[in-house]
Simulated assay, not measured.
Amino acid sequence: MSRTPEQMARFEDLRLRAAALRDEGRSRMQIKEELGLTSNWTLNELLKGTVLPDSRLRANAKDDLHRRARELRAEGRTYKEIGEELGVSKSSVSLWVRDLPRTGRLSREEARRRNIEGVERYWEREREIRRATRQGISDAAAAEIGRLTDREILIAGAVAYWCEGYKNKPYRESNHVTFINSDPGLILLFLRFMDVAGVSRDRLYFRVHIHESADVEAAERFWLDLTGADPDQFRRATLKRHNFQTVRHNTGADYRGCLRIDVLKPLEVYRMIEGWAVGAMRGSRPPSEGGERSVSKPVVRRAARSWRISIGGRPPSPVR
Rank of each mutant, 00 (worst) to 15 (best):
residue 161 Y to W: 12
residue 82 I to S: 05
residue 143 A to F: 04
residue 90 K to Y: 03
residue 302 R to C: 04
residue 66 H to A: 00
residue 50 T to A: 01
residue 34 E to Y: 06
residue 83 G to N: 02
residue 299 V to N: 08
residue 52 L to W: 07
residue 227 T to P: 14
residue 228 G to M: 09
residue 107 S to V: 10
residue 210 I to H: 02
residue 251 T to P: 00
residue 310 S to W: 06
residue 113 R to S: 05
residue 189 L to S: 14
residue 228 G to F: 07
residue 292 E to R: 15
residue 294 S to E: 13
residue 297 K to E: 15
residue 251 T to V: 07
residue 288 S to M: 08
residue 168 N to W: 05
residue 114 R to D: 04
residue 82 I to L: 02
residue 65 L to V: 08
residue 268 E to L: 04
residue 124 E to F: 08
residue 162 W to F: 09
residue 264 L to N: 09
residue 67 R to K: 13
residue 112 R to G: 06
residue 36 G to D: 01
residue 135 Q to V: 07
residue 117 E to S: 04
residue 246 T to P: 00
residue 190 F to H: 11
residue 239 L to N: 12
residue 219 A to E: 05
residue 52 L to P: 00
residue 22 R to F: 03
residue 317 S to Y: 02
residue 163 C to F: 08
residue 275 G to Y: 04
residue 293 R to A: 14
residue 73 R to E: 10
residue 219 A to M: 03
residue 187 I to G: 01
residue 9 A to N: 11
residue 316 P to A: 08
residue 26 R to I: 00
residue 154 L to R: 04
residue 91 S to C: 04
residue 292 E to G: 08
residue 272 M to P: 00
residue 195 D to L: 02
residue 233 Q to T: 05
residue 21 L to R: 02
residue 134 R to T: 08
residue 86 L to S: 09
residue 156 A to M: 10
residue 49 G to F: 01
residue 35 L to S: 04
residue 293 R to T: 13
residue 134 R to E: 14
residue 303 A to K: 09
residue 285 R to F: 10
residue 252 G to R: 06
residue 188 L to V: 09
residue 62 K to S: 11
residue 2 S to K: 13
residue 10 R to Y: 08
residue 75 E to D: 15
residue 12 E to T: 13
residue 319 V to D: 03
residue 177 V to Q: 04
residue 75 E to S: 10
residue 90 K to L: 11
residue 5 P to W: 11
residue 305 R to T: 10
residue 211 H to G: 12
residue 243 N to G: 00
residue 83 G to L: 07
residue 112 R to L: 15
residue 193 F to M: 06
residue 258 C to R: 15
residue 99 D to Q: 12
residue 298 P to Q: 14
residue 68 R to C: 04
residue 262 D to N: 07
residue 202 D to A: 09
residue 205 Y to H: 14
residue 239 L to D: 11
residue 76 G to H: 09
residue 82 I to Q: 03
residue 268 E to V: 03
residue 30 Q to M: 10
residue 310 S to A: 09
residue 101 P to K: 13
residue 219 A to T: 02
residue 245 Q to H: 08
residue 218 A to I: 02
residue 43 L to M: 07
residue 316 P to K: 01
residue 287 P to E: 12
residue 182 S to G: 10
residue 283 G to Q: 03
residue 68 R to F: 00
residue 72 L to H: 05
residue 187 I to Y: 08
residue 44 N to K: 15
residue 126 E to L: 14
residue 61 A to P: 07
residue 131 R to H: 15
residue 74 A to N: 12
residue 130 R to G: 01
residue 235 R to V: 03
residue 90 K to D: 05
residue 68 R to L: 11
residue 80 K to N: 05
residue 33 E to F: 01
residue 201 R to I: 02
residue 97 V to I: 09
residue 282 R to Y: 11
residue 206 F to H: 14
residue 30 Q to N: 08
residue 17 R to D: 00
